[in-house]
Design a protein around this nucleic acid. Structure first.
Length: 846
RNA sequence: GCGAAAGUGGCGGAAUUGGCAGACGCGCUGGACUUAGGAUCCAGUGGCCUCAGCGCCGUGCGGGUUCGAGUCCCGCCUUUCGCACCA
């Protein structure tokens, strides 16, 4: 029979579903292994690029199962979010309906890929039974002062009509829609992630199995800086101004001070300034600029006309306002040391301010200013008590001096800011807070949760959150005084939903509590987490933060939620841009080939090809449907994992797919040849096949552990080729049959359907349920004999066949015992380098 | 600008500790089977050479260490990613 993936695959998908293969009883004993793909946003149809992620997870899951582990692999839906709402506005479908429809389609697609999820644990964040615990968590954080309402300059996306977290602003633009973000002064809800900055930073060191790249990104984002807060007296103000610096050792070189234009002391400082109005106008202008715009303008400043006293030199130094000083970081004020800071140097040059070097290079050379080295290469000069000290010691000493004088202290500052979680959007978890005229802000009592999102609200698409217009929702009574009150109409950032879902998967139906701590402590942290690099900061940082708050509430016994993290690379494909249409992407069905040139259909416009991530907007997605119809899901699975190392970006090639199909068809044909044989026989090639089998078991196991799926599959192709060489004579040899069965087992994680079918053909029970991962026998991996060539001084001295492994004495005898081999490591020992094909043996002669 | 990673055939990519460079696959070339081939199977496939060989060259470029370098060291070049007034 020819290989017909279509029939085989639906047969096995049905059987696995009936047998509930992936369902795990979380209370049952066993060696737990929790693996997890980041739960997806249900945006609609999945393409082969998405597939990479889930196929990879499924391959691992099946591997762990065959290893005998109690492997849990749940799946759910990050189901709240803006696209659903936009779809509602655009097409008149309710966000819920749109979301549920997408979930159905995606779930069916997972099935067609043969992915085994424990669907008994399924959850969706838009389900009241889920977001209820979001609200509960909010209340707990509020109780602990970790959720607060505050007024702050926030990022506002005019396109999406909502505020954004700092983490969602990339290059000054909305991460989602690319619109330039505006700064607005608004009162919003925040989570106090800054209180955990030190623990989040320190915890990164314990994450041995996270990619360094992600840890570095998080470390930079948290931005821990050691330094000092120092007060500079300002006589005109009648009180000091506090600055933050990471270089207190350079304080003798502080020749002026710069404040952020928004600094609270600015109005008092410029009160009597003759050009006050002009300065105020300039401040307003700067205030309305985004960070990006400020940098485009370049450094700008205004002199306040006032002076501060440098506490170490006792000199009066001018106080300036500068657009490069950020109110959000440190104290919003700096001491400027132009000799040793690039920014201060530029500013001083521009406005003719004095530059006073106080650090000299250790080697005595004449430094080019600004001299900014912060290590031992610099020594303090003209700096009183720290004269002659190398920079690191100078910093320590001056901080002690600052503290002794009571004008400041050593501090650690973080770049991280609090997490703004309010969103002026409908499709999200309602924030469980009530505004009462007499009692102020009152939390919704836990017993009244969930605050349900009303479903029958109008979607006009204009002017704000539809929730705010739902009087029935908004108007309520105060839980404290019973008087009339208003509900909060903002919803939570959906990253709150995804910050703890991995714990809910253990007991997803619990109506009494957020989760069962005992079971969660047994199953978590997640052993293997898989997802895209785009979440390196956002989701992973928030999840680490929330996990720590749960730890502090004594709900969980661990602080890090994910032990191992793997970021798969994206799949790319060529798309086409139209240069005459402002480089807009052109749908594939409008691309016409004239020879090698892509043209827009019906025109003479040559298009510009560009390879990039698969996405709808580029019109370069490959839907899996045709592929599966023609070659089967196993082919897609094998190809996807074979295409490139999984962490790397990979270019999709429609022609390349055929290679995976040929491989599976070959395995199929070999199975039919072997399956028909009953008689025992012996073939000449069997020894070679057995050796290859053990080498392959060893190699594939190691490569799966290292996530080297591409080479694991190439090793299986080699084994199949070796078996093929031994056929048809070897088909009756039980050793060839044994090797073939091992091939099926090793191939199962990658091509589960066809291997199940062939396993059955060979007379076995369901592989995923009954088969154990094979073990390699090291003794049987060796070649029987090896040809060795002896090189002396780089010149070939002879070739000889010796038993494997080559024993020194035998080798030397074979080569000629008196062989004069030069010694290259003098004085120690003589090393003879023997050149062995495939292996290298260094023979050491004492 | 700062930081990190990476440069290997026509393409995706292999190469424990320095040890036969190019595994495996795509593509390509030739052949077989065919009414047909965009199916399948077989063979070949880094470059060079009228000494086709136990030959020469070859892993971004230039040096170095070593009996031996894709791999280690120094200096460049290029690409990708991350950060980017964070004091």
């Amino acid at each position: 029979m020819p290989y017909t993936p279509k029939d085989i695959e639906s047969k096995w998908q049905q059987r696995w579903a009936e047998a509930r293969v992936a369902e795990v009883d979380v209370a049952a004993p066993g060696q737990k292994l929790y693996m997890l793909n980041m739960f997806p946003y249900p945006s609609g149809d999945l393409h082969v690029g998405h597939g990479r992620n889930y196929i990879l997870g499924d391959a691992l899951f099946r591997y762990f199962r065959m290893q005998g582990k109690a492997a849990l692999n749940p799946m759910g839906w990050d189901a709240f979010g803006l696209p659903a709402e936009n779809a509602a506005i655009k097409r008149g479908i309710h966000p819920r309906e749109w979301t549920v429809g997408n979930i159905g389609r995606m779930k069916a697609q997972f099935g067609r890929w043969g992915i085994l999820y424990d669907w008994s644990k399924e959850l969706a964040s838009c389900d009241p039974e889920y977001y209820r615990w979001n609200q509960w968590l909010f209340l707990q954080l509020h109780k602990r002062g970790l959720a607060y309402r505050g007024k702050a300059p926030v990022n506002w996306c005019p396109q999406d009509q909502t505020v954004l977290a700092n983490e969602q602003v990339v290059d000054g633009r909305c991460e989602r829609c690319g619109t330039l973000v505006e700064q607005r002064e608004l009162e919003q809800w925040f989570f106090k992630i800054t209180e955990y900055a030190d623990r989040l930073d320190a915890g990164l060191d314990s994450l041995e199995h996270w990619p360094d790249k992600v840890k570095t990104m998080q470390r930079n984002w948290i931005g821990r800086s050691l330094g000092a807060d120092v007060e500079f007296a300002v006589p005109a103000l009648g009180k000091p101004v506090r600055i933050f610096t990471t270089r207190p050792d350079t304080i003798f070189g502080a020749t002026f001070m710069v404040l952020a234009p928004e600094h609270p002391d600015v109005p008092a400082l410029i009160e009597d300034h003759p050009e006050r109005a002009a300065i105020e106008q300039w401040i307003d202008q700067v205030r309305n600029q985004t960070n990006v715009e400020r940098q485009e303008v370049g450094k700008e400043g205004r002199f306040t006309g006032r002076y501060a006293i440098n506490p170490f030199t006792n000199q009066e130094i001018p106080i300036w306002l500068g657009n490069f000083v950020l109110m959000q970081y440190g104290t919003g004020a700096i001491m400027s040391v132009p000799a040793h800071d690039e920014r201060d140097f530029d500013f001083a040059r521009q406005y003719g301010l004095p530059i006073r070097p106080v650090i000299r290079p250790r080697d005595g050379s004449e430094p080019e200013l600004p001299f900014t080295f912060k290590d031992d290469s610099g020594i303090a000069v003209h700096s009183g008590p720290i004269d002659g000290l190398p920079v690191p010691q100078a910093i320590e000493t001056i901080i002690r001096e600052i503290e002794r004088r009571g004008i400041g202290k050593g501090t650690i500052r973080y770049r991280l800011r609090d997490w703004l979680i309010s969103r002026q959007r409908y499709w999200g978890t309602p924030i469980p807070m009530i505004y009462c005229e007499t009692d102020g802000i009152v939390p919704v009592p836990e017993g009244q949760l969930p605050v349900e999102l009303p479903l029958d609200v109008p979607f006009t698409g204009r002017s704000g959150n539809p929730l705010a217009k739902d009087k029935q929702f908004v108007n309520t009574t105060c839980p404290r005084c019973g008087g009339p009150a208003r509900r909060e109409t903002d919803t939570m950032d959906t990253f709150v939903d995804s910050s703890w879902y991995f714990a809910r998967f253990i007991t997803p139906r619990d109506g009494e509590k957020i989760f069962d701590s005992h079971l969660v402590n047994r199953w978590l942290p997640v052993d293997q987490y898989i997802g895209g690099i785009e979440h390196a900061i956002l989701h992973l940082l928030y999840a680490r933060f929330i996990t720590r708050t749960l730890f502090d509430m004594k709900l969980v016994s661990f602080e890090e939620p994910f032990t191992r993290l793997f970021n798969q690379g994206v799949i790319t494909k060529e798309g086409y841009r139209d240069p005459s249409e402002n480089m807009a992407w052109v749908p594939l069905n409008e691309v016409e080939w004239r020879g090698d040139t892509p043209m827009k259909r019906g025109t003479m416009t040559p298009l510009v090809p560009e390879v990039g991530k698969m996405s709808k907007s580029r019109f370069n997605v490959v839907p899996p449907d045709d592929l599966i119809e023609r070659y089967g899901a196993d082919t897609e699975r094998v190809y996807t994992l074979f295409i490139a190392p999984p962490e790397k970006e990979a270019a999709w090639s429609d022609e390349g797919v055929i290679g995976a199909y040929r491989f599976l068809a070959r395995v199929w044909n070999q199975g039919e040849a072997i399956g028909d044989q009953r008689a025992a026989g012996r073939s000449a090639d069997a020894d070679r096949v057995v050796r290859k089998m053990h080498q392959t078991i060893d190699g594939v196991t190691r490569r799966i552990e290292k996530f080297e799926f591409n080479t694991a599959i190439s090793a299986l192709m080699e084994l199949s080729n070796t078996i093929g060489d031994a056929l048809p004579e070897g088909a009756a040899d039980p050793r060839v049959r044994q090797a073939y069965e091992a091939l099926l087992q090793l191939l199962h994680p990658f091509a589960p359907h066809v291997t199940e079918e062939l396993w059955e053909l060979l007379g076995h029970e369901e592989m995923i349920l009954t088969s154990k991962w094979p073990l390699a026998d090291a003794a049987l991996m060796q070649e029987e004999s090896v040809t060795i060539a002896v090189q002396v001084n780089g010149k070939l001295r002879g070739q000889v066949e010796v038993p494997n492994p080559p024993v020194e004495a035998v080798v030397l005898q074979a080569v000629g015992a008196n062989e004069r081999v030069r010694s290259w490591t003098e004085g120690k020992q003589i090393v003879k380098t023997i050149y062995v094909p495939g292996k290298l043996v260094n023979v050491v002669v004492k």
